[in-house]
Write a protein that binds this DNA or RNA. Structure first.
Length: 302
DNA sequence: CATGCCCCCTGCACGC
DNA sequence: TGCGTGCAGGGGGCAT
């Protein structure tokens, strides 16, 4: 599921359930996700109030009253869902349904691959589900965030103020890789993934095979290509966020609703289809680049 | 240092 | 129906 627009959609969905609420109980239902949970993972969560839920690149970051930050990554298949007034609710318990002090999900809501559950004082339960377990959670002291290896090398936010054509040209002018590989590199710009890189390159009419360095002049000044590309990245991300992200396979918003930006893909997963660019007449092709599928129109992306 | 490849894991679509 | 193969939104770790 999760590139920047999907993670941002998740953040907005979790905010009402988590911000300002206390984590009354936390459950880790296995010993690891991609990495083992820290030994004190549960202890550092229970009793803490979430004061804010932010996002950096594809990471969610929950600020806790203790001064810790809960870092969460969705990997390839991670998703959250919010169960309002779940069986953990202390104020709205149906008599006989729950033993006081116990925290259970309604039977019908307990699914395979539910690995982490936060029972919030609001009565909501926040459930992390991740079949492939490429996702992970890690608690970091806020004053140690700057040294955190997982975050350290991240480049600028693509929708942030520092990311512009000048900066993109600057970070690409010495690169020997393709434009596709450069945009997937989270140190160049943080938050794009395979779908949105394909879409942005298509919309900018730039070939994924083009050398990244061609975004800059010899003096590392941005070319028109760089300016066009930054515009396309902004456009595609903003449109996707507005659409609640993309639901390919089973990505859901936290409410369970589907995102719908997948219907707006112009090249991704459209191999063999006619190019949508006016008067192009090309056909969308697929090839493997750095081990990942690239979709593009060889006729109008140069 | 930069680059590219392998691999972690499960589920699903496809061809036979 | 069942089985084998390939592929999937990411990115850490390692060889080159």
């Amino acid at each position: 599921m999760p590139e920047l627009p999907e993670v941002e959609t998740v953040r907005r969905g979790l905010q009402p359930a988590m911000e300002g609420s206390k984590i009354v109980k936390a459950e880790a239902r296995r010993k690891d996700l991609r990495f083992p949970f820290q030994k004190d993972f549960i202890a550092r969560l229970e009793g803490q109030t979430v004061t804010g839920l932010g996002r950096r690149a594809k990471y969610l970051m929950a600020d806790l009253t203790s001064g810790d930050v809960l870092l969460m990554h969705l990997g390839m298949s991670g998703s959250f869902r919010v169960l309002e007034n779940g069986a953990n609710s202390t104020s709205k318990n149906t008599p006989g349904q729950n033993t006081p002090g116990q925290f259970h999900l309604p039977r019908s809501e307990d699914r395979a691959h539910d690995h982490v559950v936060f029972h919030m004082s609001s009565g909501a339960s926040v459930v992390f589900n991740d079949p492939r377990r490429f996702g992970y959670m890690k608690i970091i002291a806020r004053n140690a965030l700057e040294e955190e290896p997982l975050l350290k090398g991240l480049g600028p936010e693509p929708l942030g103020n520092e990311f512009d054509a000048r900066m993109l040209a600057q970070s690409c002018h010495n690169k020997k890789t393709s434009l596709k590989a450069a945009l997937l590199d989270q140190r160049v710009v943080a938050g794009l993934g395979n779908i949105y890189v394909c879409e942005a390159l298509y919309r900018a009419h730039l070939s994924p095979r083009r050398l990244a360095a061609t975004l800059a002049t010899k003096k590392a000044e941005p070319t028109d290509h760089a300016k066009r590309l930054v515009g396309s990245i902004h456009d595609v991300l903003n449109q996707a966020i507005k659409a609640g992200g993309s639901s390919i396979s089973d990505h859901r918003q936290t409410s369970g609703e589907l995102g719908y930006f997948q219907h707006s893909f112009q090249v991704y997963d459209r191999e063999g289809e006619k190019c949508q660019t006016a008067r192009c007449g090309g056909v969308v092709r697929r090839f493997v680049q750095n081990g990942r599928s690239t979709f593009w129109c060889p006729k109008c992306q140069k």
